[in-house]
């Protein structure tokens, strides 16, 4: 790891101030992606601004027909949350599949979506749930938030503070982990919510997480696994690597989608 300077922020405002003091600073929350990346010398922030101790970024609330999850909420907290299990059990299930127990104790939902790793689990749920990403300065629809591999609509110093969504009528998540890394080789989150049926796919897309329009159309009239039987996935827009070709991933997208619907 290259040398860096650590700062612990006590509030969102404090974090913005600390970040503003340096051009090459990065926010760190659980650090479950950033610290290993820095260890590999693939990232070299001059400064780290730690968001893990900001009280206003923590906690889960359900009120007024919206679920709100503070960005600093850990995967373990989401997985175990009675509120989430009641409002959207598929999301609790998804959180329980991220990394391993130790990673889930540190990693946060805000960190995951701000990083937008193409194999991360949460972005698929954010898309499928039509979630709103709440930052220190605005609200961004999930559809507008995830813009490419490791890229988001966030400005350089912008902080994800929370995510909110309306509890879906039905939702399911099915994941096929990469045999080595155990990140999603393909993960599909399906949700039938106030805005209709939405399908988010992670791990498979060459440009990161995406919505599967054909599946959404097929499921709109008939929210069942059978409805997906005729739907195909175009491999030309999918990732290909030593673990899985685009064709294989296309198959996984279809299979995981059927299983997610069946589980919903």
């Amino acid at each position: 790891m290259y040398a860096t300077n650590y700062h612990r922020a006590s509030s969102v405002a404090d974090a913005l101030r600390l970040k503003g003091a340096s051009d090459e600073a990065k926010y760190v929350s659980g650090g479950m992606t950033l610290i290993p990346t820095m260890k590999q010398r693939l990232a070299a922030p001059s400064d780290l601004v730690d968001l893990r101790h900001i009280a206003e970024m923590k906690g889960i609330t359900v009120s007024g027909g919206r679920v709100r999850i503070g960005a600093g909420t850990t995967h373990a907290e989401v997985a175990q949350s009675a509120e989430i299990k009641a409002a959207c059990p598929a999301l609790a299930h998804l959180a329980s599949l991220i990394g391993d127990p130790q990673v889930r104790h540190m990693g946060t939902i805000g960190g995951s979506i701000a990083n937008n790793d193409p194999a991360a689990d949460y972005p698929s749920a954010m898309l499928a749930l039509a979630a709103t990403i709440v930052t220190d300065r605005r609200e961004i629809a999930a559809d507008d938030f995830f813009t490419g591999l490791f890229e988001t609509a966030l400005q350089d110093d912008e902080i994800v503070v929370a995510v909110t969504f309306a509890p879906p009528e039905r939702a399911g998540y099915s994941k096929f982990p990469n045999p080595a890394s155990r990140y999603a080789m393909t993960g599909v989150f399906v949700a039938k919510g106030p805005g209709g049926v939405r399908v988010g796919v992670t791990g498979a897309g060459a440009n990161g997480v995406f919505r599967h329009a054909a599946m959404e159309a097929a499921l709109t009239g008939n929210f069942s696994a059978q409805a997906l039987s005729g739907v195909t996935t175009d491999p030309s827009e999918l990732l290909s690597d030593i673990h899985g070709s685009a064709e294989y991933r296309a198959n996984l997208v279809n299979v995981m989608a059927r299983r997610a619907v069946a589980a919903a």
């Binding site: 610290i35 260890k39 130790q102 540190m106």
Partner: peptide, 15 residues
């Protein structure tokens, strides 16, 4: 750390 299992290779001492 504070009663929960974590990976000390992915956490800075300052954290």
């Amino acid at each position: 750390m504070d009663g929960k299992a974590i990976k000390s290779c992915s956490t800075l001492a300052v954290q």
